[in-house]
C-alpha cells in the first residue's frame, strides 16, 4: 500500500488540536510544557467549552501560554494566578477557569495565594508543572529541587543542612478541606500522557459539577536546566524525581487516598 493511499482525511487517527495556535512553541526541544498545553487544550476541545473557558498564565517559561492556547487568557502577576482565577470565577461562576503555573510561580512566590485559594475551596482547576528548577532564569534552585540535585545555585547538589528541605506542595494542599481532587502525574511517555489526560478530564468535570477545587501536578523535565538531552532527562526524572514525587492520586472525591 502506498503512502499516498494511507495519508487521507478519512484515515486520520491523531492531529494537533485546533485549540493550539500555529505559533511555534517557545520552549526548548523536549520540554514537557508543550505536551501539558496540548493535553489541557484537547480536554477543553472534547468538552466543547472553548468559548466559556478562561485560562490564567503565570510568570515563568509558560508566561507566553496565551500565545499558544487559542482561548481567552489572562496573564497574572508572579504567583498571583489563583487570586486572579478566584476573582474571575466569582464574577462569572458559569465560566471554566483554570490556572497553569510552574513550580517557581506556584510553590515559591505564590505559596500564600495557592494555599488560601485551595483552603477556600474555590471552584477552579490548578495545573501545576513541577520540574524542580527555575527554568526560565537559568536553572536556579527552587523550593521543589530534590536533595542532591545540582542546579546553578547549588552546584554541589542541594544540601538539606544548608538549604532546607524540598517542598511537597501537592501533599500539603491535599490536607486542606477545600480541595476535592488532588493528583500527581507526568508527561514523559505515552502511558503517562494518557493518565494525565484522564486526570485533567476529571478535574474539568469536577469544575462543571461545582464540587470544588481540583489540583493536578505534572512532574516534567527541564532538559536545559538539568543539562541533559531530552530522553536522558526523562530517564533521570523517573529515577530521581519519582521516588520523592510519586505519581498517582493523592485525594479523590474529597478523601485522602490511603497509602499501603
Amino acid at each position: 500500500m502506498k503512502l499516498q493511499e494511507i495519508i487521507k482525511e478519512e484515515n486520520l487517527v491523531y492531529k494537533r488540536t485546533p485549540l493550539m495556535t500555529d505559533n511555534v512553541l517557545s520552549y526548548c526541544p523536549g520540554c514537557g510544557h508543550g505536551t501539558a498545553h496540548r493535553i489541557v487544550m484537547e480536554v477543553i476541545e472534547e468538552m466543547g467549552v472553548q468559548d466559556d473557558t478562561i485560562g490564567i498564565a503565570p510568570v515563568g517559561c509558560s508566561v507566553l501560554a496565551y500565545d499558544f492556547m487559542n482561548i481567552d487568557m489572562v496573564q497574572a502577576a508572579h504567583g498571583r494566578a489563583p487570586a486572579v482565577a478566584t476573582g474571575i470565577k466569582r464574577t462569572w461562576p458559569d465560566k471554566f477557569v483554570f490556572t497553569y503555573q510552574g513550580d517557581g510561580d506556584l510553590a515559591a512566590i505564590g505559596t500564600a495565594e495557592t494555599i488560601h485559594a485551595c483552603n477556600r475551596g474555590e471552584n477552579i482547576t490548578i495545573i501545576f508543572i513541577n520540574n524542580g528548577i527555575y527554568g526560565m532564569t537559568g536553572g536556579q534552585m527552587a523550593p521543589t529541587t530534590i536533595e542532591g540535585m545540582k542546579t546553578s545555585t547549588s552546584p554541589y547538589g542541594r544540601d538539606l543542612q544548608l538549604m532546607g528541605n524540598p517542598l511537597k506542595i501537592t501533599e500539603l494542599v491535599a490536607q486542606l478541606p477545600g480541595t476535592y481532587f488532588v493528583a500527581r502525574h507526568s508527561v514523559h511517555n505515552p502511558a503517562a500522557v494518557r493518565k494525565t489526560k484522564r486526570a485533567v478530564q476529571k478535574a474539568f468535570q469536577i469544575q462543571k459539577e461545582r464540587k470544588g477545587l481540583a489540583f493536578i501536578e505534572i512532574v516534567s523535565n527541564c532538559n536545559s536546566g538539568w543539562k541533559l538531552p531530552p530522553v536522558k532527562a526523562n530517564q533521570w526524572m523517573v529515577e530521581n524525581m519519582f521516588p520523592f514525587f510519586p505519581p498517582g492520586d493523592i485525594k479523590v472525591d474529597g478523601e485522602l487516598v490511603k497509602k499501603e
Binding site: 487517527v13 491523531y14 493550539m20 505536551t35
Partner: peptide
C-alpha cells in the same frame, strides 16, 4: 502501526497520524 504514541508525546504537536 498507527498507534499515535509518537504524536501524543510530541511536545510540539508536529506529528499527524493516519491508519488503515
Amino acid at each position: 502501526i498507527g498507534c499515535a504514541n509518537c504524536a501524543i508525546v510530541c511536545p510540539d504537536g508536529v506529528i499527524t497520524v493516519y491508519k488503515v
